[in-house]
């Protein structure tokens, strides 16, 4: 069940990205193109996701621990630092340029579009570079 739930979560996530249109960079870029061929669909993706996660997370966190793990790994940071601002800004520029963010890019890998085959290895390299620049702060968690 432990492994199956993780596999199922990955499959659900990828299927949601495909069904919603997030795995199509043209659709993502059209959402971002307010003054051109605007396609508002992506606002519905975010709305649909948050509609489930907001009550879902609330319910789950009423439990003292997850089903297959001792503790919840929730981000605890509340500070704003330069890395958050600079990182998010950089991410947004890349997202606009390619129309891909990490989930849709990986989901698109089996479709083997030439652009995806350029994007994904570059993305992994970018992640490794960012990890090397990170100031060690063992207390901080992702997000």
């Amino acid at each position: 069940m432990h492994t199956f739930s993780t596999l199922f979560a990955g499959l659900l996530f990828g299927s949601g990205l495909i069904l919603s249109g997030m795995a199509n960079p043209a659709k993502v870029q059209n959402f971002l193109d307010l003054f051109g061929t605007w396609d508002p669909s992506l606002a519905f993706v975010m709305g649909g996701a948050i509609m489930i996660t907001m009550p879902g997370f609330w319910l789950v966190q009423k439990r003292s621990a997850p089903l297959f793990h001792g503790v919840f790994h929730l981000p605890t940071r509340t500070d704003f630092d330069a890395r958050l601002v600079f990182g998010a800004a950089t991410f947004g520029i890349g997202w606009g340029l390619g129309g891909f963010c990490p989930g849709p890019a990986l989901t698109s890998l089996p479709l083997a579009a030439s652009g995806t085959l350029f994007f994904v290895p570059a993305m992994l390299v970018g992640m490794v570079i960012a990890k090397y620049t990170a100031v060690p702060s063992p207390k901080s968690l992702e997000v």
Partner: peptide, 16 residues
């Protein structure tokens, strides 16, 4: 797409 990938990877990890 290489530039976009580098920026997305770098930015998402730096911005957590």
């Amino acid at each position: 797409l290489v530039i976009a990938g580098l920026l997305v990877g770098f930015g998402s990890v730096m911005g957590n």
